[in-house]
Write a protein that binds this DNA or RNA. Structure first.
Lengths: 128, 128, 128, 128
DNA sequence: GTGGTCTAGACCACG
DNA sequence: GTGGTCTAGACCACT
């Protein structure tokens, strides 16, 4: 079952896009795999405290992108090819890093300071 | 005069919030300082190609947050305390670095890979 | 036994309402009479290729309207008063003829053209 | 300006489809013509007592069908070719008459009775 | 004021 | 229980 345990809503971005992003990030990080079961619209709706319709919109778009398969009355499942996965990984990483360095550059940091900040926080978060 | 030279519009976030964010980022990066003059609403509108109403909304919210003050002659000036600046810096770093490394960590990259990517793209964007 | 021989599903109207309507139309046209036996829910479900729950909903509403009564053995029978029948007839004619001539009138047809069209298509559908 | 004066909401059909139908019927009946101005979403919303979003859905579909043209901040106008109009007329009339005679046939009326009913009500409604 | 989008709640048909 | 649709209200960007 695809988990939304570590998912929290941010501001300034539509909820349905945040959900789509969570799935894509999970796929790229191989936490989510092809064949995994998606939570039902209602379940996820209750879990996130978001309207079922918003969830529905995410799922519908994911289906149009070919990342999940749905059938009425049945569960929804992840369906992704290896090829698509690699493509998504490149897209997501590229997008993330560019937005990130752009922000810090605008905040007046230089390359060294940025690298140091990343290293520091990474150790703090994931290596303690 | 507060500059919008390096400002570009993104998607998925309201324009008026992007403008507010640009000011905050500039303040944190000390490119913008207390006392600096804001461009007039109509000037900024023309410069960014954005509707004056949208600009007006940004200025109004910035005023409500106490980050700019309008004076006679319709000129607006930046006004920020040292305390507020530190608070903003923490908020922005939270929003940027932590979300960023969290994303890449979730996508399965380790610290070394992340640092390498940041270094690479930084050089590519800002040192060529 | 109430027949669903000439019943076909249309779009843009809930199935359970179409079923109820079919009963009412049959009653008004005296093809269905008080005392007639309704097919069992599961039989009708199979016959129309419609989910049992949807059939159940129709029967429940028909019961609430007092048009069918369930007896022991799970058999349901039509039960309608002469008064109710006249009322229903008026309702249905209102719904059909008036809306129909109103539509064609609005589309710019006159009486003669309308009558000719009805005659033509009637012959084509039911007399060939 | 396209009028909704004689428009009233019926049941059992989505509101947005009823609105689309009203436009098409008006076009076919030449009450509405190419170049006519549509009421704004808000105006029509208030007039019909329906949510603006529902109106928006109708307008969007009409635009996708090429029957109206919209621009942000500007009015919406009818745009229809003579060819499209003739096609629509045939579709609408065919659809109307078939549903109508089907209903009355199911109500047990024969051709003569149906024609008589149409004639009677037509005279009553439009020739008195 | 205009059109467009996002989120929300209720309902429908299905297994 | 499942997925899908319709209606509703608030918000955004633009003239």
């Amino acid at each position: 079952m695809v988990s939304f345990q570590e998912f929290t809503l941010k501001e300034d971005s539509p909820i349905y896009l945040q959900i789509i992003r969570h799935i894509k990030v999970g796929l790229v990080g191989e936490i989510i795999k092809s064949g995994d079961e998606m939570p039902s619209r209602r379940r996820l709706s209750a879990l996130l405290g978001v309207n079922p319709n918003t969830i529905q919109k995410s799922y519908k778009l994911l289906e149009e992108e070919g990342l999940i398969a749905s059938q009425v009355g049945a569960k929804s499942f992840i369906t992704v090819t290896e090829e698509r996965l690699i493509q998504m990984k490149n897209e997501l990483i590229q997008e993330n890093v560019e937005i990130f360095i752009d922000s810090l550059h605008n905040m007046g940091l230089n390359r060294e300071e940025t690298l140091q900040l990343v290293e520091e926080l990474w150790r703090e978060h994931y290596e303690t």
